[in-house]
Amino acid sequence: MAKVVWGMIMSVDGFVNDRQGSLSKLYASFEPNDEINAAMGNTGAVVMGRNSFESTEDTDAYADNYEFQVPLFVLTHQPPARHPKENDKLTITFVTEGIESAIHQAKASAGEKDLVVLGASTGQQALKAGLVDELQIAIAPILLGTGLRFFEHLDDLEIELEKIKTIETGRQVEIWYKVI
């Protein structure tokens, strides 16, 4: 059965975007290697929030060149008026029934492959609901000083983690944790 992996890239000081809401400074250091490519290749579905989904100017571009060519499940209060372009591998489902429904649908679609959760708010919701099996945190070599914090709204939630592995590239480190 699919594992649920919340994956994010953050600055050394814990921000997942800058003061303008941009991810570009964080992704400037992204260098996939064989291990990262294998993890990405074992992704069977993606759950993300509407803000993450619309972070690209043209949502039709997902069908043409998104790194995960798998079914996407977008958590939202209101689906867009126009459904974005899809292809034979990448379908887009807008889920309005909450994080549990999005995870359930995506797991069914992923089969034996992993389900990746993207986005700070969506990941926090999944973590609070006890739906995350692993955290994958890529640390970009930059201090942003402000922006959206990775673990901003977890309130009094205390979760124990166990380090599974680390992956180093020339510019960044990824740390994988199992949620206990």
Rank of each mutant, 00 (worst) to 15 (best):
E86P: 02
N37W: 14
D58Q: 14
D64C: 04
Q105L: 11
E31A: 15
K113H: 10
Q125F: 04
H104I: 01
T91N: 09
D60G: 09
T43G: 05
V74E: 01
V46I: 10
E112M: 04
T43F: 05
A45R: 07
T91R: 13
A129V: 06
M48F: 02
K89H: 15
G111S: 00
A108Y: 05
T93Q: 15
P80N: 00
H104V: 01
A120V: 13
V116C: 05
I99S: 07
T56E: 14
S109G: 05
A120D: 07
S52R: 03
V117E: 10
T76E: 00
A110E: 05
A63D: 08
A39S: 14
I36K: 08
A106P: 04
N65E: 13
V95Q: 02
M48G: 01
E112I: 05
T91E: 09
R50A: 01
A106F: 05
P84T: 14
F53V: 09
E57R: 15
T76M: 00
L72M: 05
P84N: 14
G41W: 12
D58L: 10
V116G: 02
E100I: 05
R50S: 04
E35P: 02
I92V: 11
F68C: 09
L118T: 03
G123A: 11
T122I: 07
K89I: 13
S109N: 08
